[in-house]
Simulated assay, not measured.
Amino acid sequence: MALAVLALALAAGLTGALPFAGQSDGDALVESVRDRYESAETYTAEVTVNATDGTATETRNLSVAHAAPNSSRLTLEDEGGDVVYGTNGTVAWVYDEANDTARVYPLNGSASNATDHPARNGTAWNSTDAGNDTHPANLSTYLEENVSATVVGSETVRGAGTTVVRLEPENESREGTTTLWVDDDDRVHRLRTTRGENVTTVEFRDQHFNASIHESTFRPPTDAAVTVAVTERYDSFDAAQAGTDVELRSLDGDYEFVEAATVTRGGATVTTQQYTETGTNATVALAATADSLPYDAENGTSVTVDGADATYVERDEGGAVFWTEDGLTRGVAADVSREELVELAEDVRS
């Protein structure tokens, strides 16, 4: 459905999911918007996302497309080369224009679209990162929750008259508000989420519903260098261990196993596990391989893990620590400080 692609655009643009529900005067309008997007056989749009935390601002331009029942494509535009994520229901894939390479993941009936597949994240290392609240796979959680929907005014957006609707979660654990700018055809022209100083504004342009889209749109580029990746997923540590010859390590204490995946690509096999910390839901990924992890040691910082040499590499808001042990490369990745990562790595190594 088009709503899934809309959510995918929002997630790629660093914003939260879309909470369509409510019991106020804005209910009828919000329900009409949801029906408009969910019922579309095809949907395309150009999207601009602007996110600020009060001190820094980031802007991303995206193109999205969807065709029922399960074909989707998202292009993340970048001056250095676009990155394209897609699926046709049979395979999920990610294309890197800068390197003219495509990684293809057979779905084997285990996933309906790219949003719940490693291709959505780009590498085997962070293939378990989909558990955070901004990932579109969690959109249904927001759809099921109640919000207070209130019409607060009207405004012209790029020449279109819109009704402005404010959505406030009735669940006290959910912070912030979402505001929609909706035209008479139930199209969202603008969406803004506000959580304290964190404000994300999403502008939708050139939206088309039920237009013809050629099926080749949802296939990886034929001229690119293609690497096929095979993924196996596991819902328990024992199942993951049984599925690989590599001896896996677990993260105990306050951490709970969520899932694991073994990805084989280009002759290299990496097994990752995802754990969450009790009480905080902070995510930690463990990786193990007889090959190598996708980090360049030359760009890292030398650290010591339980008396052994290791390397710390900064990534996003956190980082990764990896080391070689008995012919295997092991790593820990999380959005925490270097010191906390080293402590986690020591727990895994000991």
Rank of each mutant, 00 (worst) to 15 (best):
T304C: 03
D53E: 03
D35W: 04
H117W: 14
T289K: 09
A65E: 01
G267A: 04
S154V: 12
R190N: 02
G159Q: 05
T55A: 00
V336T: 07
V284M: 10
A308H: 15
A68Y: 10
Q274R: 15
A130Q: 12
A310T: 04
V165L: 00
T141V: 10
E38K: 13
S216I: 02
A137P: 02
D35I: 08
A7C: 07
D309L: 00
G153D: 14
T134K: 09
L293C: 07
P169H: 04
T44G: 06
D53S: 00
E175D: 10
D296A: 13
D206W: 01
T280I: 01
A119D: 05
N99K: 13
D238Y: 03
A229M: 06
S154E: 15
Q207L: 03
S173P: 05
D326T: 09
V188M: 13
G81N: 08
G243M: 10
G327N: 02
D309E: 15
R34M: 09
F20T: 12
D206C: 04
R73V: 12
V305L: 01
T55P: 00
V152Y: 05
V321S: 02
N299T: 14
D223M: 03
D116L: 12
E298T: 15
R36H: 14
R249V: 03
V5R: 09
A239I: 09
G266R: 02
A229D: 00
T269G: 04
T276I: 13
Y275G: 07
M1W: 07
V47P: 12
T271S: 04
A308K: 06
A137F: 12
L191P: 02
N108K: 12
R315I: 07
V342Q: 02
H66C: 13
A28T: 12
A224H: 01
A268M: 11
S110R: 09
Q273E: 15
P19G: 05
T177F: 08
G267K: 08
A130M: 15
A261E: 09
A290T: 08
L74A: 11
G86A: 11
Q273T: 15
Y95H: 15
E168I: 03
E170H: 13
P294D: 07
G80A: 11
T304Q: 05
T271N: 07
T123D: 08
T115S: 13
D27T: 06
D183I: 04
R120F: 14
D347F: 07
E145L: 10
G122N: 11
A12C: 10
N121G: 01
A224K: 00
G267F: 07
T244H: 08
T269N: 00
P221L: 11
S39Y: 06
R205N: 09
A310P: 03
A224R: 08
E277W: 04
V33T: 13
D96A: 12
D27E: 12
Q207C: 10
A261N: 06
G109W: 08
W125L: 11
D306R: 01
A68Q: 02
P136K: 09
A45Q: 01
R249P: 06
V303Y: 05
